[in-house]
Write a protein that binds this DNA or RNA. Structure first.
Lengths: 228, 228
DNA sequence: TGTCGATATGACCATGTGGTCAACTCTGTT
DNA sequence: AACAGAGTTGACCACATGGTCATATCGACA
């Protein structure tokens, strides 16, 4: 009865992985309705029947992808307290989010497409886990404002600002490449963008940057960049 | 030969308008592939044949919508020079973009969906008009930096930051409503968000806010009720 | 009344859709 | 060699898709 499950799990895991990657690309660019199982199968280099054999149905495949992306997202969210340094926390958040967007641009676009169509599959997540996460952050930001550690800006809008700014570079890559006339955004672009965002957002809400030597270097990176 | 063309142009204009509005909603939430003519027809309250009679084909309808959105966008873009006040220009840009997003959320989402799938219909626009617009702005921003009127931030990233931050409130409305637990974003929300963005972005790149009487009046006009 | 062009729409078509199924191969175990 | 179960796949189904077309209705004008 094949008590050794590595071989068949091997094939299964391998094929599922191929399918997930392909599906992420197709769903990301065409949304749920616009993506066809046939297109996903072709992107994965497998017959349609084989894809359905592994994933069961288009819907299950889509949900699996969303869950994988939410898991990545949750793994990124570390906890903070009001005694932490605002500059470190904000900069850490920006850099984490930017790294996530950089490492999983397709997943990021998938998420964007899902929300664009009204988040039919993510209502629960948005109204549950994510809402609580945002609210707890917001409370800490408010305490910082009261302590005079940052300007009295609305913490929820601040979180959305960081969100949108970082998300943008994955979702609107076509626009950015078209306008900057590049073929792709390189590692140095991402570094420069990240430093830029840290500079503007921290300064913009009156947060003192993490005062180590690093931040000085970061700022000079911004001016030094010529990669556009 | 019905030299009076108002009556039949009347019906045509009226129906085309209904169809465009319906199509904008459907395309915005499902993308080009995911939208079906049938769904558009139902949203418009017309038989499918009638829709095709007016718009010719799904593709023509989609292109017409993109062009309408680009026209709105272009109408917003006023010209600037290096002698203008940075604060006024930046704040004006943020407020214009925010107003556009507010007034045409569906069009904004349509644009987002198009860019998400790699901008297949907008390549030309992105590489042409829009690129030139961004570059000319960037040059002015750079002169301002040299004059010490603002921090030496990369002007292109700054434009994208404003873009993303304003676009976000239309494109990700579902997410925002889910997290803030509201039914819809009201006029006061938009005012608060706009003021917040002006504050953070101008301060963030070291631009002195417009401080003359005019902009003070402007500020009160827009704010009207409560500051963030 | 009859004519004419714009408007309206159901019937229809070729193709694409998600999904099922039976038949097949492959691989490890007895 | 025989078996079992995972993996594989083409044929197939009911239905949706974008688009065409013939036909029917409408409103203005003669």
């Amino acid at each position: 009865m094949t008590s050794m499950n590595s071989p068949e799990l091997g094939t299964r895991a391998r094929n599922e992985s191929v399918i997930l990657e392909a599906a992420e690309r197709v769903f990301a660019s065409h949304g749920y309705r616009g993506a066809s199982v046939q297109a996903i199968a072709e992107a994965a280099g497998l017959p349609k029947s084989n894809v359905l054999y592994y994933v069961g149905s288009k819907r299950k495949l889509y949900v699996a992808l969303l869950e994988r992306m939410m898991a990545r997202w949750n793994a990124m969210l570390d906890d903070i307290g009001e005694d932490d340094d605002p500059g470190e926390v904000l900069e850490g958040f920006i850099r984490s989010k930017m790294r996530l967007t950089r490492q999983h641009p397709q997943g990021s676009r998938l998420f964007a497409a899902e929300v664009l169509q009204g988040a039919p599959f993510l209502q629960e997540y948005l109204h549950g886990e994510l809402r609580e996460w945002v609210r707890s952050r917001a409370r800490v930001f408010e305490r910082w404002s009261e302590k005079g550690l940052m300007d009295p800006v609305d913490p929820v809008w601040l979180i959305f600002l960081i969100w949108s700014a970082t998300q943008h570079y994955a979702d609107f890559e076509a626009q950015i490449l078209g306008i900057t006339d590049q073929g792709a955004l390189g590692e140095s672009d991402y570094r420069a963008i990240t430093d830029f965002l840290c500079h503007v957002i921290l300064k913009g809400c009156g947060v003192r940057p993490p005062s180590d030597v690093d931040s000085e270097r970061h700022y000079q990176d911004i001016q030094g960049k010529e990669t556009t």
